[in-house]
Design a protein around this nucleic acid. Structure first.
Lengths: 337, 337
DNA sequence: CCGTGGTATGTTATCCGTAACACTGCTTCA
DNA sequence: TGAAGCAGTGTTACGGATAACATACCACGG
């Protein structure tokens, strides 16, 4: 509301004196400072960060563009991002793309206009367009969760290949030979990588990989439900399901229940992405848990380091290990490995 | 990066012509328009929204300040907020206060500096300070989820009194006479309201309310765990627990399990706030579910209406009904009502 | 042939805060 | 006594975009 000019006038000084008082910069007499501070308090003056940002070309604002904040995996990332940003005096604008490249492009365009200092991006698809766009506009990016091909950007993600490999190996160790993997769109790198890990485990066990067991669908409950129906229709029926993310797992579970199949007695099940312990009464699913909070933190720290010009010149890619948590859904829970 | 001046120079026109092309305003010749558009595309020019905002005193940015985005209740609200904001061309900055008034004050201060057009606030405590602060700086607010005393602000919340009343009545109907309520800090209006509903149900049943059964703690898992231990230590022991929110419910459940007590056989349990169906395999808790997504939507629509000067002059308060969902945890699930 | 009005474009001032520079008055030291 | 130096304060210009105003040109009607 009030401007620095009004404060200056009322305190009988120039705007620069007010500015110096606010920023504790340069010289100010005790008397002038006292008068200005009194007027500021009296008028409830708050400096306009827009004007400041316009000069400094720094908004102290980051953007977090992800597919859906409602997915607890991303929620947790968001919390990690916001905590680190806040600690460094930055704010975070967030946006949900729902995996749509169009929505993503719209967000990025507006965010560039708003001069955000940097972007944390979970790319809708693993195309390099969005990253190239940001780079050409001079906005630093850190790609989260997913890979973007041949694009030298900083990135932080969980080890999807390793996780896929270990979950599959676990099922193989329990005697399963027909494992269906319910994956996401092949253009999403995590979906592809988890399938790659699955394949590697099979190959290592000397099994050949029946392509009908690799299903692709939406990374949401509906996708999981549908793919499970498809998997159940196969002959011979798979004895185990590998859900490529938490929402798919829920959809799969629903489909199994609707088909009157019991987990793990009738079918074993494993999934990617754990749910925060704060949300579940009785943990049931055997999962590959990604360190979501740490991913958010790490990505934000990398981004802020870039902004401060402190990062290494080269592209930096952090792949965090996933943790296999064995619970009931995979069957024989006590077998371990 | 590039400025409107550079574009103008390169296109051999004035900045105003470029501005007119960008905004489709005023007159521009076909030729000039074509040239300008070509240069814009060539240079990858993106207008600086900061400069625009500085003139228009409109940032097209809202703020969402809540206690913890990690709580699925708030996550869902956030999604509702962001969807509506996005539909109207607004972005959303979010911040977690962790129920700290200090953190909240810091956020609000920065957000006012950043000239957000409006704030959606889940107040840490039910004090009027933060709302007064925003109002005095001319920033419209809509208070979400919680009441703020004697303060004429728009607000949207679930009917905590009614929900507390119905959950308690449900337990009474199942024969319970000693019901412990595990509530949040009494300064948080939802906690207080849920206790009020609980009291009303008891009074209506002609029972007097044993004050030791009303426990207050943190609105998180730890609080639920601790309050449950306290409740279990009472003699006679309560036969039912009423958790005032979802995190408390989880903590309570953990405490019961650690005490080797089974729900609902040994103790019945009901709670406020449902978990999104996308998150739980087997819904178990009997809950009062608030329409979180709609709350976020509704609050944002109210805020945007205010910004557009369309809202009614008077304060507007929307209290949305809660839905009682009877599941296993309350026992005798088929009794219904 | 001049005035009127529409089209097309440019100039100036403004939004708010601050860096850079300029200026005043006083002290200090050679 | 004069130069140097510092404290304290003010003036100007700028960041990027645009509203308001000014100007220029052309066509058309009287």
């Amino acid at each position: 509301m009030a401007t620095i000019r009004e404060v200056a006038e009322r305190a009988g000084v120039s705007t620069m004196t007010v500015s110096r008082v606010i920023n504790n910069s340069g010289y100010t007499s005790r008397a002038a400072r006292a008068r200005v501070e009194a007027v500021i308090a009296e008028m409830g003056y708050v400096p306009n960060a827009l004007a400041r940002s316009l000069r400094f070309k720094q908004t102290k604002t980051l953007a977090l563009v992800l597919s859906d904040i409602t997915n607890p995996f991303f929620t947790t990332i968001a919390r990690g991002v916001e905590d680190v940003a806040n600690r460094h005096g930055f704010n975070v604008i967030f946006g949900n793309t729902d995996e749509s490249e169009e929505k993503q492009a719209e967000y990025l365009n507006v965010l560039v206009q708003k001069q955000v200092d940097g972007v944390l991006l979970v790319p809708a698809l693993s195309t390099e367009g969005p990253v190239a766009f940001l780079r050409s506009r001079g906005v630093p990016v850190v790609v989260l969760d997913r890979r973007v091909p041949e694009c030298s950007t900083d990135g932080v993600r969980g080890d999807s290949v390793q996780g896929g490999y270990e979950l599959t190996k676990l099922l193989l160790g329990l005697g399963h030979r027909r494992i269906a993997i319910l994956s996401g769109p092949p253009e999403v790198s995590t979906a592809a990588d988890r399938v790659a890990g699955y394949r590697r485990a099979l190959a290592e066990a000397g099994l050949n990989c029946d392509p009908v067991l690799i299903l692709h669908g939406l990374l949401r409950q509906a996708g999981g439900y549908q793919m499970t129906q498809q998997a159940l229709a196969l002959t011979p029926r798979p004895t185990a399901l590998f859900a490529a993310n938490n929402f798919i797992a829920i959809g799969a579970y629903r489909a199994l229940r609707d088909a009157r199949l019991h987990v793990p007695d009738d079918l074993a099940m494993v999934a990617f992405d754990d749910l925060p312990p704060a949300l579940i009464l009785e943990p049931f699913l055997t999962v590959a848990a990604q360190p979501a909070y740490e991913m958010g933190q790490c990505a934000t720290e990398m981004l802020l380091a870039r902004l401060a010009g402190k990062g290494p010149d080269a592209r930096q890619e952090v792949v965090l290990p996933v943790e296999i948590i064995i619970r009931c859904s995979s069957g024989n829970p006590l077998t371990g490995e």
